[in-house]
C-alpha cells in the first residue's frame, strides 16, 4: 500500500530524513518510535505532502502510484489520513461543517455526487457515538477551545468519517488521559480492517498496549535503524533508546 524508498527530506536546507525505507501492506499496523528530534513527525508530514519540507531524494508511492508530485488534498482523496500532533484551530467553522466539506470534496474528486444530507447525518451520528462524542461538540468551532483530549478525539472522529486507507497517527496519545486513550484506541481498532493500514507514531509504548502493532520501527537521526515485532516496543520501554544508539554506533 505505502512504499517508501531511500527517502531524504529537509527543511530550510537542514536534512531531517536521511534515507527512510518502509513498506506498509493492507491490514498491517506499524509503529514508528524514536526519541525527540529523530524525524518522526517530519516523516508523517512528508507522507501527507506538507510543502514546508523538501523531498531531496527517494520515492514515496501509495497504491502503486508515485505521489511525490501530488498536493496534500490529492493525497487525502487517495485515502491518506494524518492525525495531527497539534490539530489546528479554525474559528467560526463548525466540526460538522468542516467534515461535510471534507467528505464532499473527496467524493467530488472521485466523481461522486455530494453525500445526501440524511446519509451525512446518519454517519455523523454513528461515528460520534463510536468515539463517545457529544452532539453539542459537533457544532463548536473546529478545535477552538478544545482540550488536548478533545482535539485528539476529534481527529479520530474525522478519521472515522473519512474512512482512509492509510491512517497515520502522529503522537495521538500525547495529552490523553487514560479514559480518552481507551476511547481513541477502541475507535482506531474498530475501524481497522484487512483492507486498511495504520501507522502509529509515538514516543511511548503506552498506546501500543491498546493498538497492537505488527511491526515496530526505531527511527534515529532520520533513518530506521531497527525493526522488529511488538516485543521491540517493550524492550525500548524498559531500556530506553541509548542501547540502540550504541548498537548503531558500533
Amino acid at each position: 500500500m505505502l512504499k517508501i524508498e531511500n527517502l531524504h527530506a529537509s527543511i530550510d536546507d537542514k536534512e531531517i530524513l536521511r534515507g527512510i525505507n518502509l513498506e506498509v501492506k493492507p491490514g498491517e499496523v506499524h509503529a514508528i518510535m524514536g526519541p525527540n528530534g529523530s524525524g518522526k513527525s517530519t516523516l508523517s508530514s512528508v507522507i501527507a505532502g506538507n510543502e514546508d519540507f523538501e523531498v531531496t531524494d527517494g520515492k514515496i508511492s501509495f497504491l502503486e502510484e508515485d505521489i511525490a508530485e501530488l498536493a496534500p488534498e490529492e493525497r487525502a482523496h487517495k485515502g491518506i489520513f494524518l492525525s495531527f500532533q497539534y490539530p489546528v484551530e479554525i474559528p467560526g467553522v463548525s466540526v460538522t461543517n468542516f467534515m461535510k466539506t471534507a467528505i464532499n470534496e473527496s467524493r467530488r474528486a472521485q466523481g461522486l455526487e455530494d453525500m445526501p444530507a440524511n446519509e451525512m447525518l446518519k454517519k455523523i451520528r454513528e461515528k460520534s457515538e463510536l468515539l463517545e462524542i457529544d452532539r453539542k461538540f459537533l457544532s463548536r468551532s473546529l478545535n477552538q477551545g478544545f482540550s488536548g483530549g478533545e482535539k485528539k478525539r476529534n481527529e479520530i472522529f474525522q478519521m472515522a468519517m473519512l474512512e482512509p486507507k492509510l491512517a497515520i497517527l502522529d503522537e495521538t496519545d500525547s495529552g490523553l488521559d487514560i479514559d480518552a486513550l481507551r476511547i481513541v484506541s477502541d475507535g482506531v481498532n474498530r475501524l481497522k480492517s484487512k483492507d486498511n493500514a495504520v501507522v502509529v507514531i509515538t514516543h511511548y509504548q503506552r498506546l501500543l498496549e491498546y493498538i497492537v502493532p505488527d511491526y515496530v520501527h526505531v527511527l534515529l537521526n532520520g533513518r530506521i535503524v531497527k525493526s522488529g515485532g511488538k516485543e521491540l516496543a517493550l524492550e525500548l520501554e524498559e531500556k530506553g533508546y541509548d542501547w540502540i544508539k550504541q548498537e548503531v554506533a558500533v
Partner: peptide
C-alpha cells in the same frame, strides 16, 4: 490565514481555494 490552517484543510481533502473560503466564512460567521 495561517499556513497551518490551510495544510490541515488540505490534509482532509479540501483544496486551498476552498479552504480559504471556508476559513473566511468562519471568520465572517457572526
Amino acid at each position: 490565514i495561517g499556513e497551518d490552517q490551510i495544510f490541515y484543510c488540505n490534509q482532509r481533502g479540501i483544496d486551498t481555494e476552498k479552504a480559504i473560503a471556508l476559513i473566511v466564512n468562519g471568520f465572517s460567521k457572526e
